[in-house]
Amino acid sequence: MTTPAPETDAPRLPAEWEPHAATWLAWPKNPRDWPGKFHPIPWVFGEIVRRIAQFETVRLLVDDAAWEDKARRVLGKAGADLERVRFHHVPTDRGWCRDMLPAFTLRRASPRVRAVRFGFTGWAKYPDHLLDAEAPEHVARALKMPMVRAAAQGRPLVLEGGGIDGNGRGTLLTTEECFLDPITQVRNPGLTARDYEDAFREFLGVEQVIWLGKGIAGDDTHGHVDDLCRFVAPDAVVLCREKDPSDENYRVLEENRERLEGVRLHGGGKLQVIDLPMPEPLFFDGVRLPASYANFYIANGTVLVPTFNDPRDRIALGILAECFPDRIVTGVHAVDLVWGFGTLHCLTHEQPSAGKALDIVHTS
Protein backbone atom coordinates (compact mmCIF):
# COMPACT_ATOMS: atom_id res chain seq x y z
CA MET A 1 0.00 0.00 0.00
CA THR A 2 1.31 3.44 -0.93
CA THR A 3 2.05 5.74 2.00
CA PRO A 4 0.51 9.19 1.41
CA ALA A 5 2.88 12.13 1.26
CA PRO A 6 2.83 14.45 4.26
CA GLU A 7 -0.19 16.75 4.12
CA THR A 8 2.01 19.85 3.94
CA ASP A 9 3.68 18.60 0.75
CA ALA A 10 0.87 16.52 -0.78
CA PRO A 11 -0.14 17.13 -4.39
CA ARG A 12 -3.62 18.25 -5.37
CA LEU A 13 -5.26 17.80 -8.75
CA PRO A 14 -7.15 21.06 -9.31
CA ALA A 15 -10.64 21.10 -10.76
CA GLU A 16 -10.99 22.25 -14.35
CA TRP A 17 -12.93 25.37 -13.29
CA GLU A 18 -10.03 26.67 -11.19
CA PRO A 19 -7.91 29.47 -12.75
CA HIS A 20 -5.87 28.52 -15.80
CA ALA A 21 -2.51 29.84 -16.90
CA ALA A 22 -3.21 28.47 -20.39
CA THR A 23 -5.01 25.90 -22.50
CA TRP A 24 -2.99 23.45 -24.59
CA LEU A 25 -4.09 22.22 -28.02
CA ALA A 26 -2.33 20.41 -30.89
CA TRP A 27 -3.02 21.63 -34.41
CA PRO A 28 -4.81 18.93 -36.48
CA LYS A 29 -2.70 17.35 -39.18
CA ASN A 30 -3.62 13.65 -39.36
CA PRO A 31 -6.36 13.05 -41.98
CA ARG A 32 -6.71 9.47 -40.69
CA ASP A 33 -8.36 10.86 -37.57
CA TRP A 34 -11.19 12.30 -39.69
CA PRO A 35 -11.19 10.19 -42.88
CA GLY A 36 -13.19 11.91 -45.59
CA LYS A 37 -14.00 14.84 -43.28
CA PHE A 38 -10.64 16.42 -42.56
CA HIS A 39 -11.15 19.62 -44.58
CA PRO A 40 -13.43 21.42 -42.06
CA ILE A 41 -11.49 20.37 -38.97
CA PRO A 42 -8.86 23.19 -38.98
CA TRP A 43 -11.73 25.69 -39.17
CA VAL A 44 -13.39 24.11 -36.15
CA PHE A 45 -10.05 24.46 -34.35
CA GLY A 46 -9.93 28.08 -35.41
CA GLU A 47 -13.25 28.65 -33.67
CA ILE A 48 -12.11 26.79 -30.54
CA VAL A 49 -8.92 28.84 -30.30
CA ARG A 50 -10.80 32.08 -30.99
CA ARG A 51 -13.23 31.40 -28.15
CA ILE A 52 -10.62 30.34 -25.59
CA ALA A 53 -8.13 33.10 -26.45
CA GLN A 54 -10.71 35.69 -25.42
CA PHE A 55 -10.09 34.59 -21.84
CA GLU A 56 -6.67 32.98 -21.56
CA THR A 57 -3.45 32.09 -23.35
CA VAL A 58 -3.60 29.22 -25.83
CA ARG A 59 -0.45 27.11 -26.20
CA LEU A 60 -0.54 25.34 -29.54
CA LEU A 61 1.60 22.34 -30.52
CA VAL A 62 2.65 22.35 -34.19
CA ASP A 63 5.20 20.11 -35.87
CA ASP A 64 7.42 22.85 -37.25
CA ALA A 65 7.54 26.35 -38.74
CA ALA A 66 5.61 25.28 -41.85
CA TRP A 67 2.74 23.96 -39.75
CA GLU A 68 2.84 27.10 -37.62
CA ASP A 69 2.36 29.17 -40.79
CA LYS A 70 -0.65 27.05 -41.77
CA ALA A 71 -2.18 27.42 -38.32
CA ARG A 72 -1.58 31.17 -38.26
CA ARG A 73 -3.37 31.61 -41.59
CA VAL A 74 -6.45 29.73 -40.39
CA LEU A 75 -6.49 31.44 -37.01
CA GLY A 76 -6.14 34.85 -38.62
CA LYS A 77 -9.09 34.24 -40.91
CA ALA A 78 -11.10 32.87 -37.99
CA GLY A 79 -10.53 36.08 -36.04
CA ALA A 80 -8.49 34.56 -33.20
CA ASP A 81 -6.32 36.90 -31.15
CA LEU A 82 -2.86 35.72 -32.19
CA GLU A 83 -1.30 37.78 -29.42
CA ARG A 84 -2.79 35.25 -27.00
CA VAL A 85 -1.45 32.20 -28.89
CA ARG A 86 1.96 30.66 -28.18
CA PHE A 87 3.32 28.16 -30.70
CA HIS A 88 5.47 25.20 -29.66
CA HIS A 89 7.28 23.14 -32.31
CA VAL A 90 6.61 19.63 -31.04
CA PRO A 91 5.96 16.77 -33.50
CA THR A 92 2.86 14.71 -32.68
CA ASP A 93 1.09 11.68 -34.12
CA ARG A 94 -2.57 12.38 -33.44
CA GLY A 95 -2.57 15.25 -30.98
CA TRP A 96 -5.43 14.58 -28.54
CA CYS A 97 -4.00 16.73 -25.76
CA ARG A 98 -6.36 15.62 -23.00
CA ASP A 99 -4.93 12.12 -23.15
CA MET A 100 -1.29 12.56 -24.06
CA LEU A 101 -0.19 15.60 -22.03
CA PRO A 102 0.76 15.41 -18.35
CA ALA A 103 -1.61 16.07 -15.50
CA PHE A 104 -0.77 19.26 -13.61
CA THR A 105 -0.91 19.28 -9.83
CA LEU A 106 -0.53 21.99 -7.23
CA ARG A 107 1.37 21.53 -3.99
CA ARG A 108 -0.61 22.04 -0.82
CA ALA A 109 2.24 23.83 0.95
CA SER A 110 3.18 26.20 -1.88
CA PRO A 111 1.75 27.59 -5.14
CA ARG A 112 4.14 25.50 -7.28
CA VAL A 113 2.72 23.57 -10.25
CA ARG A 114 4.13 20.15 -11.10
CA ALA A 115 3.65 17.97 -14.18
CA VAL A 116 2.73 14.33 -13.65
CA ARG A 117 3.73 12.13 -16.58
CA PHE A 118 1.62 9.07 -17.26
CA GLY A 119 2.41 6.45 -19.86
CA PHE A 120 0.51 6.81 -23.14
CA THR A 121 -0.03 3.78 -25.40
CA GLY A 122 -2.52 5.13 -27.94
CA TRP A 123 -5.52 4.04 -25.86
CA ALA A 124 -4.03 0.52 -25.96
CA LYS A 125 -5.27 0.40 -29.53
CA TYR A 126 -3.41 2.59 -32.04
CA PRO A 127 0.26 2.00 -32.93
CA ASP A 128 0.89 5.58 -34.10
CA HIS A 129 1.39 7.08 -30.66
CA LEU A 130 5.15 7.22 -30.02
CA LEU A 131 5.51 10.95 -30.71
CA ASP A 132 2.47 11.73 -28.62
CA ALA A 133 3.93 9.67 -25.78
CA GLU A 134 6.96 11.98 -25.67
CA ALA A 135 4.94 15.21 -25.63
CA PRO A 136 4.90 15.52 -21.79
CA GLU A 137 8.69 15.99 -21.72
CA HIS A 138 8.47 18.77 -24.31
CA VAL A 139 5.71 20.52 -22.40
CA ALA A 140 7.47 20.34 -19.02
CA ARG A 141 10.69 21.57 -20.62
CA ALA A 142 8.95 24.49 -22.32
CA LEU A 143 7.38 25.52 -19.02
CA LYS A 144 10.58 24.87 -16.99
CA MET A 145 8.34 22.81 -14.75
CA PRO A 146 9.35 19.87 -12.52
CA MET A 147 7.92 16.56 -13.66
CA VAL A 148 7.35 13.25 -11.90
CA ARG A 149 6.69 9.91 -13.59
CA ALA A 150 3.64 8.13 -12.22
CA ALA A 151 4.06 4.44 -11.45
CA ALA A 152 2.16 1.59 -9.86
CA GLN A 153 3.46 -1.78 -8.71
CA GLY A 154 6.94 -0.86 -9.89
CA ARG A 155 6.07 0.02 -13.49
CA PRO A 156 4.94 3.14 -15.36
CA LEU A 157 1.23 3.87 -14.95
CA VAL A 158 -0.61 4.22 -18.27
CA LEU A 159 -3.49 6.66 -18.08
CA GLU A 160 -5.29 9.16 -20.30
CA GLY A 161 -6.72 12.41 -18.99
CA GLY A 162 -10.13 11.67 -20.49
CA GLY A 163 -10.36 8.62 -18.26
CA ILE A 164 -10.55 10.68 -15.05
CA ASP A 165 -12.35 13.78 -13.80
CA GLY A 166 -11.79 15.47 -10.42
CA ASN A 167 -13.51 18.00 -8.19
CA GLY A 168 -10.31 19.60 -6.87
CA ARG A 169 -11.19 18.44 -3.34
CA GLY A 170 -9.82 14.91 -3.40
CA THR A 171 -12.55 13.02 -5.29
CA LEU A 172 -12.09 11.47 -8.72
CA LEU A 173 -14.47 9.90 -11.25
CA THR A 174 -13.41 7.04 -13.54
CA THR A 175 -14.80 3.85 -15.07
CA GLU A 176 -14.14 0.17 -14.62
CA GLU A 177 -14.48 -0.42 -18.35
CA CYS A 178 -11.53 1.85 -19.11
CA PHE A 179 -9.05 0.73 -16.48
CA LEU A 180 -10.16 -2.62 -15.06
CA ASP A 181 -11.24 -4.57 -18.16
CA PRO A 182 -8.70 -7.45 -18.38
CA ILE A 183 -9.35 -8.21 -22.06
CA THR A 184 -10.11 -5.13 -24.18
CA GLN A 185 -7.69 -2.18 -24.56
CA VAL A 186 -5.78 -3.10 -21.40
CA ARG A 187 -3.70 -0.18 -20.13
CA ASN A 188 -2.07 -1.72 -17.08
CA PRO A 189 -2.30 -5.54 -17.03
CA GLY A 190 -2.85 -6.97 -13.57
CA LEU A 191 -3.54 -3.70 -11.74
CA THR A 192 -6.47 -3.76 -9.34
CA ALA A 193 -8.82 -0.96 -8.32
CA ARG A 194 -6.82 -0.65 -5.10
CA ASP A 195 -3.57 -0.27 -7.09
CA TYR A 196 -5.10 2.58 -9.08
CA GLU A 197 -6.45 4.23 -5.95
CA ASP A 198 -3.04 4.08 -4.28
CA ALA A 199 -1.39 5.64 -7.35
CA PHE A 200 -4.05 8.35 -7.61
CA ARG A 201 -3.46 9.18 -3.95
CA GLU A 202 0.31 9.35 -4.32
CA PHE A 203 0.55 11.33 -7.54
CA LEU A 204 -2.72 13.31 -7.68
CA GLY A 205 -3.65 13.66 -4.01
CA VAL A 206 -6.92 11.76 -4.51
CA GLU A 207 -8.64 10.41 -1.39
CA GLN A 208 -11.80 9.00 -2.98
CA VAL A 209 -12.36 7.28 -6.34
CA ILE A 210 -15.91 6.88 -7.61
CA TRP A 211 -15.91 3.90 -9.97
CA LEU A 212 -18.60 4.03 -12.63
CA GLY A 213 -19.27 1.06 -14.92
CA LYS A 214 -19.22 1.37 -18.70
CA GLY A 215 -18.85 4.29 -21.09
CA ILE A 216 -21.13 5.30 -23.95
CA ALA A 217 -21.63 3.61 -27.31
CA GLY A 218 -19.20 4.60 -30.06
CA ASP A 219 -16.37 5.54 -27.70
CA ASP A 220 -13.24 3.91 -29.08
CA THR A 221 -11.29 4.71 -25.90
CA HIS A 222 -13.31 1.93 -24.20
CA GLY A 223 -14.97 3.90 -21.46
CA HIS A 224 -13.60 7.40 -20.95
CA VAL A 225 -15.57 9.11 -18.21
CA ASP A 226 -15.51 12.55 -19.88
CA ASP A 227 -18.14 11.37 -22.35
CA LEU A 228 -20.71 10.52 -19.69
CA CYS A 229 -20.15 12.16 -16.28
CA ARG A 230 -18.35 15.34 -15.21
CA PHE A 231 -17.92 17.39 -12.07
CA VAL A 232 -19.46 20.85 -12.37
CA ALA A 233 -18.88 21.84 -8.72
CA PRO A 234 -17.10 20.23 -5.76
CA ASP A 235 -20.37 18.56 -4.75
CA ALA A 236 -22.16 18.12 -8.10
CA VAL A 237 -21.85 16.19 -11.35
CA VAL A 238 -23.73 16.17 -14.61
CA LEU A 239 -24.54 12.67 -15.80
CA CYS A 240 -25.81 11.91 -19.29
CA ARG A 241 -29.29 10.43 -19.44
CA GLU A 242 -30.83 8.52 -22.34
CA LYS A 243 -34.64 8.36 -22.19
CA ASP A 244 -35.14 5.85 -25.01
CA PRO A 245 -35.12 2.32 -23.49
CA SER A 246 -34.30 0.84 -26.89
CA ASP A 247 -31.05 2.82 -27.19
CA GLU A 248 -27.88 0.93 -26.28
CA ASN A 249 -26.84 3.74 -23.93
CA TYR A 250 -30.02 3.54 -21.86
CA ARG A 251 -29.09 0.68 -19.52
CA VAL A 252 -25.44 1.74 -19.25
CA LEU A 253 -26.32 5.25 -18.12
CA GLU A 254 -29.04 4.07 -15.73
CA GLU A 255 -26.59 1.67 -14.09
CA ASN A 256 -24.10 4.50 -13.64
CA ARG A 257 -26.87 6.61 -12.13
CA GLU A 258 -27.57 3.84 -9.63
CA ARG A 259 -23.90 3.82 -8.64
CA LEU A 260 -24.00 7.55 -7.92
CA GLU A 261 -27.17 7.45 -5.82
CA GLY A 262 -26.33 8.02 -2.19
CA VAL A 263 -22.62 8.70 -2.78
CA ARG A 264 -21.06 10.62 0.09
CA LEU A 265 -18.09 12.70 -0.92
CA HIS A 266 -14.70 12.81 0.74
CA GLY A 267 -15.48 15.12 3.65
CA GLY A 268 -19.01 13.83 4.15
CA GLY A 269 -21.18 15.86 1.79
CA LYS A 270 -23.80 14.35 -0.51
CA LEU A 271 -23.17 14.27 -4.24
CA GLN A 272 -25.75 16.06 -6.38
CA VAL A 273 -26.45 14.40 -9.74
CA ILE A 274 -27.81 16.64 -12.52
CA ASP A 275 -29.33 15.14 -15.68
CA LEU A 276 -27.70 16.08 -18.98
CA PRO A 277 -29.50 14.86 -22.11
CA MET A 278 -27.96 12.74 -24.81
CA PRO A 279 -28.30 13.93 -28.42
CA GLU A 280 -30.04 11.73 -30.94
CA PRO A 281 -27.73 8.88 -32.06
CA LEU A 282 -25.26 10.20 -34.60
CA PHE A 283 -23.84 7.96 -37.35
CA PHE A 284 -21.37 8.50 -40.17
CA ASP A 285 -20.52 5.88 -42.78
CA GLY A 286 -22.52 3.36 -40.75
CA VAL A 287 -20.50 3.96 -37.56
CA ARG A 288 -22.07 5.22 -34.35
CA LEU A 289 -20.15 8.18 -32.97
CA PRO A 290 -19.64 9.14 -29.30
CA ALA A 291 -21.72 12.31 -29.50
CA SER A 292 -22.13 13.66 -25.97
CA TYR A 293 -22.69 17.03 -24.36
CA ALA A 294 -20.55 15.88 -21.42
CA ASN A 295 -17.41 16.46 -23.49
CA PHE A 296 -17.50 20.19 -22.71
CA TYR A 297 -14.42 22.22 -21.77
CA ILE A 298 -14.26 24.74 -18.91
CA ALA A 299 -11.96 27.70 -19.60
CA ASN A 300 -11.39 30.81 -17.48
CA GLY A 301 -14.41 32.80 -18.61
CA THR A 302 -16.29 30.39 -20.81
CA VAL A 303 -17.53 26.84 -21.18
CA LEU A 304 -17.40 25.39 -24.69
CA VAL A 305 -20.02 22.73 -25.33
CA PRO A 306 -20.14 20.39 -28.37
CA THR A 307 -23.39 20.70 -30.32
CA PHE A 308 -24.82 18.38 -32.96
CA ASN A 309 -27.59 20.14 -34.94
CA ASP A 310 -29.99 18.56 -32.47
CA PRO A 311 -33.05 20.02 -30.69
CA ARG A 312 -31.46 18.93 -27.42
CA ASP A 313 -28.48 21.24 -28.00
CA ARG A 314 -30.47 24.10 -26.51
CA ILE A 315 -31.48 22.06 -23.46
CA ALA A 316 -27.90 20.99 -22.76
CA LEU A 317 -26.59 24.54 -23.12
CA GLY A 318 -29.25 25.77 -20.70
CA ILE A 319 -28.39 23.15 -18.08
CA LEU A 320 -24.68 23.92 -18.25
CA ALA A 321 -25.36 27.67 -18.14
CA GLU A 322 -27.12 27.11 -14.82
CA CYS A 323 -24.14 25.11 -13.58
CA PHE A 324 -21.66 27.85 -14.55
CA PRO A 325 -23.40 31.20 -13.99
CA ASP A 326 -20.05 33.01 -13.86
CA ARG A 327 -19.04 31.93 -17.39
CA ILE A 328 -20.26 32.37 -20.94
CA VAL A 329 -21.57 28.98 -22.10
CA THR A 330 -21.14 28.63 -25.86
CA GLY A 331 -21.93 25.85 -28.30
CA VAL A 332 -19.32 24.71 -30.85
CA HIS A 333 -20.53 22.74 -33.87
CA ALA A 334 -19.08 19.24 -33.47
CA VAL A 335 -20.82 17.04 -36.05
CA ASP A 336 -17.62 16.90 -38.11
CA LEU A 337 -15.31 16.90 -35.09
CA VAL A 338 -16.86 13.84 -33.45
CA TRP A 339 -15.97 11.71 -36.49
CA GLY A 340 -12.53 11.69 -34.85
CA PHE A 341 -14.21 9.91 -31.88
CA GLY A 342 -13.73 12.90 -29.59
CA THR A 343 -14.67 16.55 -29.28
CA LEU A 344 -13.81 19.57 -27.13
CA HIS A 345 -12.66 18.07 -23.85
CA CYS A 346 -10.63 15.40 -25.63
CA LEU A 347 -8.72 18.01 -27.63
CA THR A 348 -7.95 20.48 -24.85
CA HIS A 349 -5.79 20.37 -21.73
CA GLU A 350 -5.79 23.04 -19.05
CA GLN A 351 -2.63 24.29 -17.37
CA PRO A 352 -3.61 25.59 -13.93
CA SER A 353 -2.38 28.82 -12.43
CA ALA A 354 -0.36 28.56 -9.28
CA GLY A 355 -2.19 29.73 -6.19
CA LYS A 356 -5.36 29.30 -4.21
CA ALA A 357 -8.32 27.31 -5.53
CA LEU A 358 -11.11 29.33 -7.07
CA ASP A 359 -14.31 29.41 -5.03
CA ILE A 360 -17.35 28.90 -7.22
CA VAL A 361 -21.08 29.11 -6.79
CA HIS A 362 -22.44 25.62 -6.14
CA THR A 363 -25.30 24.43 -8.25
CA SER A 364 -28.63 24.21 -6.51
Rank of each mutant, 00 (worst) to 15 (best):
P6A: 06
T8G: 09
R12I: 13
L13P: 02
P14M: 08
H20Q: 05
H20P: 00
A21F: 09
A21N: 12
T23Q: 13
L25F: 06
L25I: 11
A26C: 15
P28C: 10
R32H: 10
D33A: 15
K37W: 13
F38N: 04
H39Q: 14
H39M: 09
W43T: 11
V44E: 05
E47D: 09
V49Q: 07
R50T: 07
R51W: 00
F55H: 09
T57F: 04
V58M: 00
L60F: 06
L60D: 14
L61Y: 12
L61C: 05
L61R: 02
D64N: 14
D64Y: 06
W67D: 11
E68I: 06
K77F: 10
E83R: 14
R84H: 13
V85K: 00
R94Y: 03
C97L: 06
R98N: 10
R98T: 04
D99Y: 10
D99G: 03
R107V: 07
P111E: 10
R112M: 12
R114F: 10
F118E: 02
T121Q: 14
T121V: 12
W123R: 01
A133P: 11
A133G: 12
E134R: 14
E137Y: 14
M145T: 10
V148H: 11
R155I: 11
E160P: 08
G162M: 00
L173V: 08
F179C: 02
T184F: 10
N188S: 09
T192E: 05
R194L: 10
R194G: 07
D195M: 07
E202G: 09
G218R: 03
G223A: 06
D226S: 11
L228N: 12
R230W: 10
L239Y: 06
C240N: 09
C240T: 04
R241A: 13
L253H: 01
L253M: 04
N256S: 08
R257V: 07
E258I: 04
R259W: 08
K270V: 08
Q272K: 15
V273K: 07
V273T: 15
M278E: 06
M278H: 11
F283L: 05
F283D: 13
D285W: 11
N295L: 04
N295Y: 05
I298N: 02
A299T: 02
R312K: 11
I315E: 13
G318F: 06
C323L: 08
R327M: 05
I328Q: 14
V332S: 12
V332A: 12
H333T: 11
D336V: 08
L337Q: 08
V338S: 00
W339C: 13
G340Q: 13
G342I: 03
L344H: 09
E350K: 12
E350L: 08
E350T: 03
S353K: 15
S353M: 04
G355K: 00
A357N: 05
I360A: 07
T363C: 08
